[in-house]
Design a protein around this nucleic acid. Sequence first.
DNA 1: ACCGGTCTACTGACTTGTCAGTAGGACCTA
DNA 2: TAGGTCCTACTGACAAGTCAGTAGACCGGT
Lengths: 208, 208
Amino acid sequence: MASATQPSESPSRARILETARREFADRGFDGARLAGIAREAGLSHPTLLYHFNSKADLYGSVIESAVLDWAAETEAAVSGALEGFDQVVSIIDAGFDFFATHADFARILRREALEGGERLDAAITDSLRPFLYRAVDFLEREMQAGRLRRHDPLELMQICYGAVFTFFSDSRFRARLLDSDPLSPDALTRHRNALTGLLEAALRPSSG
Amino acid sequence: MASATQPSESPSRARILETARREFADRGFDGARLAGIAREAGLSHPTLLYHFNSKADLYGSVIESAVLDWAAETEAAVSGALEGFDQVVSIIDAGFDFFATHADFARILRREALEGGERLDAAITDSLRPFLYRAVDFLEREMQAGRLRRHDPLELMQICYGAVFTFFSDSRFRARLLDSDPLSPDALTRHRNALTGLLEAALRPSSG
DNA sequence: ACCGGTCTACTGACTTGTCAGTAGGACCTA
DNA sequence: TAGGTCCTACTGACAAGTCAGTAGACCGGT
């Protein structure tokens, strides 16, 4: 979906990518303006179109770079070095860590999820679905082995993803609802601890 | 936010409202086209603007009607007729029931949440925040009384809201990811049971 | 002399909102 | 019951503005 015909990296190109990520997150694909993105990057909008062939191309590049990061940063979390509940925590933390450093991408991803994710087809097949199924397989195995109490593994993953993802994508809404800094380190660890605490109470077998 | 200068209800007006809800959910405020909404409702776009003064007015009317439904349908769930975990289930079920019958609105709401929810200010003050705090107060009380195991009540509500809300707002994404009917009665009860099961394991006190 | 990167100026497509005008029902009056 | 007047619902044509994308010139470095 994303082209790679342009020179792979230049200062302008990187700056455009950065401001585009923020604009697409703030306003969505339709709402974002090439002229606005270019202005924030210190360029005219035809110059932006010199670096990226079209708006769709720019958008695709934003997605692509974030999905590559996702694949790299979550690989360790599902590779299964740990056992039982410790590994569950590692998966949750991977999600928190990734979105904490890619907060804008969380909102772009949510917009895609709303519309069905057509533009994410490659990312789904290459990264997201494998990640999900590896996690589900792990949960299945550990429940079978008695290291985790039994719950529906696929639904469990969806509940966790929904909770973590919402924490980041809806941060501005939460700011308005609760009148507090929604992504402060404090708020983040509080939410992370609440989720892992809930999961521990539900998943860790009763014996010591 | 929404005007009431037009005749309160007419067949055309109702039809416009219905197709507008779907279009705004599918494409967002910027992506939706007045001409498209009008065509689907069997009218020309100036006629749409005869019934609603502007695109923003139409959007406001869509929001307004759904928020009124929300207030009416969730009132019972937090009024607190039940005790302990039974009441928790009642709150969860209220969320599932509302969104199951307002699936398009779930996606509109998520788009608002992404952008900070400026257009929901009245709804937040009148309905959403009171609902949240009544639920949090209830949880606090029940934990104090020992009828629920202790967790952070506010974070708990956010986890639940994130899970339920995501189930509906991201249904199309889930369809693509899992290649299954995302809002079938079966999928719905399965997710509902997984969530209440998880909560029961974490919240219900250990004694019988 | 070339070329990568940038600009200004422009276009064509599209969108919201306006406006003048029409069809037809309801209501009144003689 | 005929004719006049009003009102709601609706339309086609258009004004005004916005946007992505294009054309072509400029400029500095190699």
